[in-house]
Design a protein around this nucleic acid. Structure first.
Length: 878
DNA sequence: GCAAGGTC
């Protein structure tokens, strides 16, 4: 027993609620006195206690998070006071802001009469940094203080009592890492924010905010990569080219149940190929079981909960925003129901008394009995939770700390269940027949189904949190703040389904930096910083070293970005009108009118230039109407004239005076051309074909996600935009398969490679009028011979090209399998071409067409010979 | 008027 003279101990917690809990637990509410400090929120608790046998007069008070802020010195604070580049070396200082001065005074007054200072800040890097802020303030008035740190991670008796009996030294490396992070964030954030705000805000009419003058175009090392995730996914989504594919599906129903068989090849994009294979199946439909494999499927309970997983699950199951979730979790933590809610840890340490945690829940009406069973050694149900593999060495996974019966004052949102027999995941169940190897059966259904590839969905809040987590953007405690900031800054919007899209402003900014070739909107920068911080916190790098190299690099990057500011200007110019031309009429503000939009028939089509300098004519009603015509990439200038085309209807269609870059067009074309986009202009069509539209070529640094960033996000796509006028609307600039006036792009695969306007590679189907592509046979008897075949499922139109030229005309070939769902098809696709038919039973081997008519005169699909089917065709496979 | 990180 140490005994001896009573010492006064000043205990400082990170927030008032923790001070109250710590005081309550240590004093066991015996002899606990409370008084006000200088700050009305941060009260002081007093009681007597004994640390390692030594009598102590304990004073417990608190701060409210960081006591200090980092700021530039006064003369650099005004935005126009200096060149933003100077902010990389302008002096900074830590100071206690006005609203924290009373807390500082409390600390000073109490510290003067204490011998010890015990720091009860949260046990993470930020907490350690705050601890040193408190130390700085207290030792300034009492240099003789003995400094001690309490380590705890839950506000429960055994943790707190143990912490106070095992005090340690504060960790300077942890605090240094935060100092470095603060300084880098401040310098980068302030320099780029001032730079881009002053550059762009007054130059463009940014209509997102009510008052442009107060708009801040902030840049931050966390908010920008977060925006980058949203934009990148948005670009991927917009650039997606839907492609139709085909699958062969088979099911078998028996007394035991129904089995669905998937094609080992998955799916094929080549329709003809899929039909041939399908037809072979139809011809010999008896299925043989070649292998039977039984596999046990395991479903594991979720790992112990960390902050991000909490936010993701709350968003997924409760549709709670991450911001709200954290507020609720904080309430529960402060009320003592759950452990600290900001943790990266998803595995329980060996020391955690899991049985004690479960014991608390035995009284619960819903899962209490389950808890009892878990604890019953006879039941043998107890299993230790899985190990998620993360441990921040500061806090345990989020877990309930005491029984919660549904107290008043807490909303329904607070009633989260951590130990429930988890309600949000379930087993899928179905019974399938048993099979033995070698067994044969007649499929109940055998269908050729089509599907269309889907674009990746826009990011949900849970997706976004995953991206941030994966790349280390923000802390578990701040991720939701960064997401909210993007909404507040008008950089992004969230739809009712919690899916995020960039606004024009957000997309333009990312595009601008991307065009510079910079990864400033990517997470790499932050990742490097985070690695540096970790190195500092582990003592392998010094704070000074990290600051010096990091800031040097960032300043170089800043100066370079400023040299390339024209890229930001151009990107903004795609979405926003320049403010010095803002007073013009509406038409001028958006471009020159070429014609009325033939698609929506409400708005005008106007001539515009995209960020790559390429011209297009787009509908003013975008994005409601996506009609767009991309012009040749070789156009250097384009001006809408008052001349009107006298062929194209509905008029008026204004002619455009084009100037082409001579070097980019063939020598026999004139660099100056008065052209029409109405469909009549053969020269324009040819130049689009020759030069491409240039609009969708991936820009440097944007990789595969490039294309959609163009201004209109039209449906046109790189390769197809070059192939001439659309067969539906006769406009150039998009292909038929992309025609916005046409219902579906799902047929796109069928039209590839054709050239409708040249007349020699496409003819209309004699039945439905659909253009038929010129294809080349590859059979032994007809290799190299060209033919036309209708891509439509409803036609069997087929004609050899040489017959056509001889005037023989087309003939139909019945194709078994197409349009035919052999056997009763219960799995027909509503969208695709296959499987729509009704069918007779297989045993009769009668096939019925999609119209219900029996098929007669069936012929080989490969060579057209009625004497055999494709699977027996002598020409097949040669 | 800027960042991100604490917290009220």
């Amino acid at each position: 027993m140490a005994g001896g003279r009573t010492i006064s101990v000043l205990n400082v917690a990170e927030k008032p609620s923790v001070a109250k809990s710590v005081a309550g637990i240590l004093s066991r509410n015996q002899g606990l006195r409370t008084r006000n400090g200088r700050s009305r929120y941060n009260r002081i608790f007093e009681f007597n206690y004994s640390i390692n046998g030594r009598p102590c007069h304990m004073l417990v008070t608190s701060v409210t998070g960081h006591l200090m802020e980092l700021e530039f010195e006064e003369r650099y604070r005004k935005w126009h006071s200096c060149d933003p580049a100077d902010l990389y070396q302008a002096p900074v200082r830590k100071f206690v802001p006005e609203d924290k001065l009373d807390i500082r005074r409390t600390l000073e007054e109490e510290a003067r009469r204490c011998q010890w200072l015990v720091l009860w800040l949260d046990c993470d890097r930020e907490g350690e940094n705050i601890a040193f802020e408190v130390v700085e303030v207290c030792t300034a008035v009492n240099p003789h203080l003995t400094i001690r740190r309490a380590h705890f991670s839950a506000l429960i008796d055994r943790e707190i009592h143990e912490a106070v009996q095992h005090l340690v030294e504060p960790n300077k490396w942890f605090a240094d890492a935060v100092d470095a992070r603060q300084e880098i964030d401040l310098r980068i954030g302030a320099s780029f924010t001032r730079f881009q705000t002053m550059l762009l805000r007054d130059a463009f009419i940014i209509d997102s905010a009510t008052d442009d003058r107060n708009l801040v175009l902030s840049y931050g090392p966390c908010q920008f990569p977060t925006l980058g995730f949203i934009v990148e996914r948005y670009w991927e989504n917009q650039a997606h080219e839907p492609e139709e594919f085909w699958t062969i599906n088979c099911s078998h129903k028996s007394d035991e149940g129904i089995a669905t068989f998937n094609w080992m090849r998955g799916h094929l994009f080549d329709y003809t190929c899929a039909v041939i294979i399908y037809e072979m199946c139809v011809q010999e439909p008896i299925a043989t079981v070649t292998k039977v494999r039984q596999q046990e499927k395991l479903k594991y309970p979720p790992y112990p909960l960390n902050t991000i997983e909490l936010e993701k699950r709350a968003s997924r199951y409760f549709r709670m925003s991450s911001e709200h979730t954290m507020k609720v979790a904080e309430d529960l933590y402060q009320a003592g129901f759950i452990s600290y809610p900001r943790t990266e840890t998803d595995s329980f340490s060996q020391r955690t008394d899991l049985h004690a945690i479960v014991q608390e829940q035995q009284r619960h009406p819903v899962w209490g009995s389950y808890a009892q069973q878990l604890l019953d050694p006879g039941a043998g149900l107890w299993r230790n939770p899985g190990n998620g593999g993360h441990d921040d060495k500061a806090h345990p996974p989020i877990h309930p700390t005491k029984f919660f019966s549904g107290e008043n004052g807490l909303s329904q949102d607070h009633h989260k269940n951590y130990l429930d027999v988890y309600r949000f995941e379930s087993w899928g169940s179905s019974l399938i027949p048993t099979y033995v190897s070698g067994q044969q059966f007649m499929p109940t259904s055998l269908t050729l189904d089509s599907g269309v590839t889907r674009p990746p969905p826009l990011l949900s809040e849970a997706d976004l949190l995953s991206c941030m987590d994966k790349e280390g953007i923000g802390t578990d405690a701040t991720m939701h703040d960064h997401i909210k900031k993007l909404l507040d800054r008008f950089y992004a919007t969230k739809d009712s389904n919690t899916r995020f899209s960039p606004t024009n402003l957000g997309e333009a900014l990312v595009m601008g930096y991307d065009d510079m070739g910079y990864k400033l909107w990517k997470p790499y920068l932050r990742a490097v910083m985070e690695r540096d911080m970790k190195a500092v916190s582990e003592g392998t790098k010094s704070k000074a070293e990290v600051l010096s190299t990091s800031l040097q690099q960032m300043k170089a990057c800043f100066l370079d970005a400023r040299l390339n500011k024209v890229k930001l200007f151009e990107a903004m110019g795609i979405f926003f009108e320049r403010s010095n031309r803002s007073s013009g009429d509406g038409q001028h503000a958006h471009g020159e009118v070429v014609r009325q939009c033939g698609l929506c028939q409400e708005s005008d089509m106007v001539l515009r230039r995209n960020r790559d300098g390429n011209f297009m004519v787009g509908c003013l009603a975008f994005p409601q109407c996506r009609n767009a015509i991309w012009l040749p990439g070789s156009v250097s200038e384009a001006v809408v004239t008052t001349d009107v085309c006298n062929t194209c209807t509905p008029g008026p269609v204004h002619l455009i005076q084009f100037k082409f870059r001579q070097l980019e067009i063939p020598p026999n074309y004139n660099a100056n051309h008065l052209g029409c986009i109405g469909g009549c202009d053969e020269i324009l069509r040819q130049l689009i074909e020759i030069c491409g539209t240039g609009s969708r070529i991936p820009a440097q640094g944007r990789g595969s996600t490039a294309s959609s960033s163009s201004v209109q996000q039209s449906n046109s796509r790189p390769g197809e935009a070059r192939r001439g006028a659309c067969i539906y609307c006769q406009q150039t600039g998009h292909s038929s398969s992309d025609c916005p006036s046409h219902v579906s792009g799902s047929r796109s695969a069928q039209y590839r490679g054709m050239n409708p306007q040249t007349g020699d590679s496409s003819i209309p189907c004699s039945t439905c009028g659909t253009p038929c592509t010129l294809l080349t046979a590859n059979t032994a008897t007809n290799r190299g011979r060209k033919f036309y075949s209708c891509p439509s499922q409803n036609c069997n139109f087929f004609v050899w090209e040489d017959n056509l030229n001889n005037g023989t005309g087309g003939r139909s070939v019945q194709r078994a399998g197409m349009n035919v769902s052999a056997f009763n098809s219960s799995r027909s696709s509503s969208r695709g071409r296959g499987g729509r038919g009704r069918g007779a039973h297989a045993a009769s081997t009668t096939f019925v067409s999609a119209t219900g008519d029996p098929i007669s005169g069936r012929r080989c699909f490969v060579c057209g010979d009625p004497s055999h089917f494709a699977n027996a065709c002598p020409n097949r496979g040669s």
